[in-house]
Amino acid sequence: MKTIYYENRKIKETHFIADTCFDYYSERLRADDYRGNVTLFAEWLEEESQKNNFHKIIVKSKVDDVSYWQELGYVNEGEFKGYFNGGSAFAMCKYLKKERRNSEYWVDEDRILSDVIKIPKGAKNLPLPSNYLLRMADIQDAKSLAELYGEVFEVYPTPMNDAEYVRKMIESGTLFCVIEHENRIVSAASADVNETYNNAEITDCATTPEHRKFGLMKHLIDQLEKELFQRNIYCSYSIARALSFGMNAVFHQKSYVYKGRLANNCKIFDKYEDMNIWVKDLSV
């Protein structure tokens, strides 16, 4: 029996409707969109979180509702600028367990971010070596992509090491860009497209250790941005492990702007990790 990592649910109640994600693996409840009575919706979120033993609630709030969520005890952990067809989404968060709220690594992550921001933006990519091939992926690549993610990540918030799961992602519209070396995928990244609000999350960034010295991820991100721009999607964002100097440096150099940090947001490797929000306006 396969583990259920998460479940997307459309909620329709008398006084509100919402698009939610029940994230069983990372023990959190996320609302990506909602409309209606904020107070009643907040009560529902807390009840469902307690039923499922979730420790964190995340609501993507429109700017006009931020003060309502703050009055209900939510904390603003960051901004997804341009998320709602040009309007910002704010990550309003509430914790139901003190251990989930407290981050052991916050000061270290501040130091990493400070070092990252000192790096000049817009540095040119290293040329892609002649024996590496960059291309967009298709369904036939699902197995190879799953093998890559299984090799790079021992623990990951979604089952990217499952070829069937990856295949369904590609079929549902997620864009994958890959780099091959000797007919083997050695680096990949994806753009998870939200067609309702015309934004995309750059995610699932992975490179095998022996190929990390060539700056392959920058080439992948450039190509994904071109694909998004052609689809008139101008809000590109990512959440990167706050403890990873390398990935944060990549987004900073690619002119993404730091917009906040999500505390103990999801399970990666051996623990809950804080995640930095990076946002870019592709129309500029």
Rank of each mutant, 00 (worst) to 15 (best):
K2P: 11
T3A: 02
T3V: 04
K10D: 05
I11E: 13
I11S: 10
K12S: 07
I17E: 15
D19E: 14
F22N: 09
Y25M: 00
A31G: 06
D32Q: 02
E48Q: 15
H55P: 03
D65S: 03
Y68K: 14
E71P: 00
L72F: 01
F80L: 15
G82A: 03
G86K: 12
A91H: 09
M92T: 07
K97G: 06
K98T: 11
R101H: 12
E104M: 06
I112K: 02
S114G: 07
V116M: 07
I117M: 15
K118P: 00
P120G: 09
A123T: 10
L126W: 04
P127L: 15
L128V: 05
M136I: 12
Q140H: 10
A142L: 02
A146K: 09
E154L: 10
Y156D: 05
P157M: 05
P157Q: 03
T158E: 15
N161L: 00
D162C: 03
V166Y: 00
M169T: 02
E171I: 08
L175H: 09
F176H: 07
E182H: 03
E182S: 05
N183R: 09
A189S: 15
A189F: 08
T196V: 14
Y197V: 01
Y197D: 08
I202V: 15
D204T: 10
P209C: 01
R212V: 08
R212M: 14
K213I: 09
K213E: 13
M217W: 10
L220S: 03
Q223G: 05
L228K: 05
F229D: 08
A242E: 08
L243M: 03
S244W: 12
A249K: 14
F251W: 10
Q253C: 12
Y256M: 11
N265Y: 14
I268H: 09
D270P: 00
E273H: 07
W278F: 14
W278P: 02
K280M: 13
V284H: 13
